[in-house]
């Protein structure tokens, strides 16, 4: 993660109804929930602001109807936001002309869809090469690059298959290959694994992690699966009724949920794989034994056995081996099972 901001959203609203712009104007750009309801408008995205840093994986999650899909479509301008400002690499994307927008999508953005969005009449190769074809790149060049992408997602040898001949997981690999074919700066994934069986879903998440380690893209990822979010995210934003309720690291979300709604999500989270030792340690005492210390950046799941089987607080060290604190059985139990 770097400090450079790739995408910046400020007070983004997307309102559906007979005259959204007029409605927003009448209410000074900040309509209340009551105003929306009484005038028959739906606030799909309400006053959302956040930044995405370059190379960061931001996961937006929420239940269906929470506005997460609308939000990602506002950022890509598949939908036009009603009001607000969205900067993409420093340029306001909302004032971009259709032509500039097309250029942006051709070179800077890639997107993966829940139901894959493959063209049924085209082969795997031709699907992956499609964005390049659109740009007018000649056949040999685009097929070469498409083949590379197909190899990358592990579908080598199936270039001539048609989407209907592939399994769901394979189809989504094609979707991923296609979205990466233009080598985009930012990668949007809209519930990419939701339509897949649970087993395949985990496999594809691993694949995603593998690819991201290779490519290091800036990623905006939508899901309704909290476990998936915690597994993949640098930061998670939770949406409810169009509003961004909390935006923080998974660890913060589990340890300090902003409200009951977030806590409800966090309740079933795999805490052992989210919370780091560092987050629950206390300053080391003078007499803490130094044998078999645990590392602060480790997840508590990895340190649990050592801490729980020790009859004394265990020393926590950093990567250089220097002590940074200690953690005891009590803190560990509390962290593992939530506030008891």
């Amino acid at each position: 993660m770097s400090d450079q901001v790739q995408i910046s959203c400020r007070n983004v609203w997307k309102v559906f109804g007979p005259d959204p712009a007029g409605f927003m104007k009448r209410h000074g750009g900040q309509p209340t929930t009551e105003a929306l309801a009484s005038e028959g408008y739906i606030g799909a995205v309400q006053d959302v602001s956040f930044d995405v840093g370059a190379g960061e994986i931001l996961i937006v999650m929420g239940l269906s109807g929470s506005g997460k899909s609308t939000l990602i479509r506002c950022i890509t301008r598949l939908n036009d936001p009603t009001t607000g400002e969205i900067d993409f690499e420093g340029n306001n994307i909302l004032t971009a002309k259709p032509k500039e927008l097309i250029e942006l999508r051709r070179h800077k953005m890639g997107m993966v869809f829940q139901n894959f969005g493959l063209l049924p009449h085209r082969s795997v190769l031709s699907n992956v090469a499609f964005p390049l074809e659109i740009q007018g790149i000649d056949r040999r060049e685009r097929n070469k690059r498409a083949k590379e992408m197909i190899e990358l997602v592990g579908l080598g040898g199936r270039e001539d298959y048609f989407p209907r001949e592939l399994s769901g997981g394979q189809q989504q690999r094609v979707g991923i290959a296609r979205s990466l074919a233009v080598e985009p700066d930012v990668w949007f994934l809209d519930e990419p694994f939701s339509a897949l069986d649970p087993l395949i879903r985990t496999e594809m998440q691993d694949e995603f992690i593998r690819l991201q380690q290779l490519l290091k893209k800036t990623i905006v990822f939508i899901t309704h699966d909290f476990e998936e979010a915690t597994r993949l995210a640098d930061r998670i934003g939770i949406m409810k009724d169009g509003r961004l309720v909390q935006l923080s690291t998974p660890e913060q979300m589990v340890l300090h949920p902003a409200n009951d709604y977030v806590a409800e999500f966090a309740r079933n989270a795999p805490r052992d794989r989210i919370i780091s030792v560092k987050a629950i340690m206390e300053p080391a005492a003078q007499n803490t034994p130094t044998d078999h210390p645990v590392t602060g950046t480790d997840r508590i799941g990895a340190a649990a056995e050592r801490v729980l089987t020790a009859d004394h607080p265990v020393l926590v060290i950093d990567h250089e081996g220097l002590p940074v604190g200690q953690v005891d059985r009590h803190a560990m139990t509390k962290a593992l099972f939530g506030a008891v």
């Binding site: 097309i102 250029e103 999508r105 953005m109 969005g117 493959l118 659109i134 740009q135 979707g175 233009v182």
Partner: peptide, 10 residues
């Protein structure tokens, strides 16, 4: 999905 994927392909 297909339409959006087309639009996102530029």
């Amino acid at each position: 999905d297909v339409i959006e994927s087309g639009r996102m392909s530029g």
